[in-house]
């Protein structure tokens, strides 16, 4: 299964793999916000955790439709279905590859963009921690959505519509953990909830996504 992970990471960083697109999108969205809401540093500091979380979430969404679509188009997905590794394992590796290539760069870039939004000093660590805990859930839920829409022509938009409502709990607890951390309040509860969501979807969704792919391949 590690071969699949390595291949997906290799494909992501090679030409046309889309690596860095999400990161650039995240950067641009975050830079646009001060233009939209004005340069009031107090206001920016207050909304910074939420903006950074929404930006990271949308940037994650950008690369979701590539997770299975390309493999479906060139026939690899069918061949993987007849291969000795279980489809659940394929799904898990796909989600992990998406997290490593699309979400992890966002987690690492978030503090830099926090400077642009005047994020309070106390908030940097909590922002990164909440993103590191929450983005795996975004990748996993997104992989499930990608499995649902694999094989549909222009399924990308439908994928966004399916996945965004499922992202709501992760977003709520993620921003809450980052915001409370930045304001110096206790934030153990939202962090635990966030970790719980990630653990829950990682345990359950590979089975659901694998079942959906088997149906979609028929």
């Amino acid at each position: 299964m590690s071969a699949l992970l390595l291949r997906d990471l290799k494909l992501a960083v090679r030409a046309g793999g889309g690596f860095g697109l999400g990161l650039a999108f995240f950067l641009i969205v975050t830079v646009l916000v001060p233009f939209g809401v004005g340069p009031d540093s107090g206001l920016l500091a207050r909304i910074a955790p939420g903006i950074l979380w929404v930006g990271a979430l949308l940037a994650c969404l950008l690369s979701l439709d590539r997770i299975f679509q390309l493999d479906w188009e060139d026939g690899s997905l069918e061949l993987l279905a007849t291969a000795p590794i279980p489809m659940e394992g394929v799904v898990l590796m796909k989600a992990l590859a998406h997290w490593l290539s699309s979400a992890l760069p966002l987690v690492l870039a978030a503090p830099v963009l926090g400077v642009l939004l005047n994020l309070p000093t106390a908030g940097y660590g909590w922002l990164m921690l909440s993103l590191a805990l929450g983005t795996p859930a975004l990748s996993m839920i997104g992989t499930f959505g990608a499995a649902l829409t694999v094989g549909l022509k222009r399924g990308g938009l439908l994928l966004s519509l399916l996945v965004l409502p499922l992202y709501v709990p992760t977003l709520i607890f993620g921003t809450e953990a980052a915001r409370r951390g930045a304001e110096g309040l206790a934030n153990a509860t939202p962090l635990l909830m966030l970790a719980g969501i990630t653990a829950g979807v990682t345990a359950l969704l590979p089975f659901a996504a694998a079942a959906v792919i088997r149906v979609n391949l028929r």
């Binding site: 291949r7 290799k10 494909l11 090679r14 046309g16 188009e73 060139d74 026939g75 069918e78 061949l79």
Partner: peptide, 20 residues
């Protein structure tokens, strides 16, 4: 469909399926 990845070389494509 052959299940080939356009940006991987011939040897890399084969090595992937061999590893799987």
């Amino acid at each position: 469909a052959d299940g080939l990845k356009a940006t991987l070389t011939v040897a890399e494509n084969l090595a992937f399926w061999a590893a799987i």
